[in-house]
């Protein structure tokens, strides 16, 4: 325990507008499920002294179907809720699969989708699925709400498009044009940090996203373009190697990550159908 917890201040707004007003007058560090923040605090790696608790903002918790047939997931929805939700299982099963592999049950009961994205770890397990799903975020401030495609949200290593006075309010997932695929390759079989996360949506213009292979979770645009243009799988694999920039770190090597990323692209393509996209078929 390397942080003096009793000296830290916490504001506990009841409603989103109160939270946003507090944040405008900041600076404040938001806390939702605390599963990343408290790891940093315990290790003495979080210098913030003042925090704002989002856990009471009930309006931002929960999953709803949208008119266009997509989903709207409140930023404070936990991965346990996502994991067990039938609508998510129908609309984007890959997201349920990702939720199931985030930490153990204890983490899934606390960690929120908004927190996972805002924390902006390149290894965030939910980010690749949501990127491949073409998700958008609603970012709220006292000035109003703006919509930002998730693809524009991660700007640099651990940096996002979120302003200091903004909070993620919801994740919007449009209807998916084809079957989704998710695979996390972690440091062990459970309760692991990913070495490579791969998510894909099979469609005429396939969408592919990866985590832990660059400074931010990313869309593999070259590989997507190659596949959309009808190139053969191995050309897409070559293109994928241009999309990613993995490094050697504590958990793995760049060489291994490239090998696995290539293998997962092949697996995605083989498992989600023959030559033509088959939107009706589930993985």
């Amino acid at each position: 325990m390397k942080t003096a917890f009793s000296t830290l201040a916490l504001l506990r707004p009841e409603r989103p507008d109160e939270a946003l007003a507090l944040l405008r007058d900041g600076p404040l560090t938001p806390i939702a499920g605390g599963t990343d923040l408290y790891v940093a605090l315990n290790a003495g790696l979080c210098p913030s002294r003042r925090f704002v608790d989002l856990s009471r903002l009930k309006a931002w918790r929960g999953i709803a179907a949208t008119k266009d047939g997509g989903l709207r997931i409140g930023a404070l929805t936990t991965f346990a809720q996502i994991r067990d939700d039938k609508r998510v299982a129908r609309a984007l099963p890959a997201l349920c699969a990702a939720a199931r592999e985030i930490g153990g049950v204890q983490i899934q009961n606390r960690a929120t989708v908004g927190g996972n994205l805002a924390n902006a770890s390149p290894a965030a397990d939910s980010a690749p699925v949501l990127l491949a799903a073409d998700a958008e975020l609603e970012l709220a401030s006292t000035a109003g709400v703006r919509r930002v495609p998730l693809g524009e949200f991660f700007v640099a290593y651990r940096h996002t498009a979120l302003r200091a006075d903004e909070l993620i309010q919801a994740v919007l997932i449009p209807p998916q044009p084809g079957p989704s695929f998710f695979r996390k390759v972690g440091t062990r079989a459970a309760n692991a940090i990913s070495k490579v996360v791969f998510a894909g949506v099979r469609a005429a213009r396939p969408r592919i996203a990866l985590g832990s292979v660059g400074p931010v979770p990313l869309r593999a645009k070259r590989a997507e373009a190659a596949l959309a243009a009808g190139a053969d799988l191995e050309s897409a694999v070559d293109a994928l190697q241009q999309d990613i920039a993995p490094i050697d770190d504590l958990r793995s090597t760049a060489e291994y990550r490239r090998f696995v990323a290539a293998g997962l692209l092949r697996q995605f393509w083989q498992q989600t159908g023959g030559r033509r996209p088959a939107p009706s078929r589930r993985r």
Binding site: V39, A43, G104, T187, R188, A189, A190, N191, A192, I193, L250, R251
Partner: peptide
């Protein structure tokens, strides 16, 4: 899976998050 990563004579993965002992699923 259990690897002690040493850098400059110091254990670089001195967390249970990065030192991988088996879980139920391993």
């Amino acid at each position: 899976s259990e690897e002690v990563v040493m850098r400059d004579g110091k254990m670089a993965n001195a967390q249970l998050t990065n030192y991988m002992m088996p879980t139920t699923k391993d």
